[in-house]
Design a protein around this nucleic acid. Sequence first.
RNA 1: GGUCGGAUGGCCGAGAGGCGAGGCUCAGGACUGCAAAUCCUGCCACACGGGUUCAAAUCCCGUUCCGACCUCCA
Length: 462
Amino acid sequence: MSARLKLYNTATREVADFHPLKSGQVGIYLCGATVQAPPHIGHVRSGVNFDILRRWLSASGYDVTFIRNVTDIDDKILHKAVHEEIPWWAVAEKYERAFTDAYRALNVLPPTYEPRATGHITQMIELMELLIANGSAYAPGNGDVYLDVRHLKSYLTLSNQKLDDLQSAEDADLTYKKDPRDFALWKAAKPGDPSWPTPWGAGRPGWHLECSAMAHAYLGETFDIHGGGLDLIFPHHENEIAQSQSAGWGFANIWMHNAWVTASGEKMSKSLGNSLQVQEILKTVRGIELRWYLGSAHYRSMTEFSFEALEEASVNFRRIEGFLKRATDVLGETPEGVISSGFSEAMNEDLAVPTALAVIAEIMRLGNTALSAGDLAGVRVAAAEIRGALNILGCDPFDPIFATSSSANAELLDGLVALALEQRAAARVRKDFAAADAIRDQIAALGVVIEDTAAGTRWSIS
RNA sequence: GGUCGGAUGGCCGAGAGGCGAGGCUCAGGACUGCAAAUCCUGCCACACGGGUUCAAAUCCCGUUCCGACCUCCA
């Protein structure tokens, strides 16, 4: 089934059949976080979108090597260190943990490897040596190392811009740069800044170098997919391409970019003050619900965040979850997930999750009908297909990562609710509906919702 | 100035020449002691103006509005 996957490639601006470099294997490099602030939902949308890609590739039979980096040294981290009066590495560690926590809360699988920029200085120096040796980069003697953007003819092909159309930075200092658009591979150390020794003096990495060095280290000169947010196309990805291709590497075959989460129509950013931190949102919905919401729009579509839309998505998800739980009760077990043909077709079409959700809705309708008809075989098929779909979307409610309570008090709770339900059942038998309803209202006030079904009374915690 | 997106029903959100995606909300019905859950029915949308076509949300021309990037960005 893997042969039919189609993906959109930002470089060619079209959807095309996916052909891995090596049969049965896929190498993906995803630009992860620059750990200088807590993650907002835009950051984790990227994580969720590419996690779905990864899960789908795996389910399609590929052996996936998924590299997601951590950029743990950059200007903002250093600024923050000064501002917060703690070492830069403590800033990086603190926010890296915040990202890890957010990813875990949303069931984003840990990458195959998560390299940090500062752990790859050696590879960066080797790359710079190569680039200087072949004339595509230069060290003007001030401790900086720049890439000569005019040296690579294909510069800016990803963003389809012309070098001369770029508005050049007003503060470009041409004392050392040959061209104002030449960018720093390496920055000379300033007093108080962390630095590493190099043949050109002590300094620290520029922003783009780490991704070229790390992608090369773990995925080789040419690999299948490079991903990131839309806003990384320029300059970050263009500069990665410039560095890597100047080194003679093929670099990424396919470029995939996720769109933003917007707020009031605008891209989320800290400068606008409209960013919504993951930890804040998780006070209003469960991680699985936030993931469902973030994953439900197509990855290339902007999604406008609102608490109303989030709540709507949660309601939708709880219906699906409710079906799976009822099916599990009736079947006595949760069927293993299977991939339905409709779901597979949708996902193969450049990860058409919205279409896949329509498929899930249809399966659920059939499943619910089977449930009322007592058609256990039908229930089993529907539950298995839904579970298979939810697994790919990372929203399987039976995934242990989403397990809520430790079962220490579960038995006690079971017993107490059973006691209340027995009382209510007795009241209903003697047609004392006032008493029965009073019991229902009382436990509802405590958060226990009950449903009378043909098979008896079910309860769940709201 | 250059480059790139977007505007779809009360709301969210797909689609990309015909055969009404789907979800949420709402209204009605079935079921039910009543709820809840579920199922059924209903609510015929594509920014605006032209054009092409037997047929346009979809293609073409023009217009309006919104957003992104142009060296901090997921």
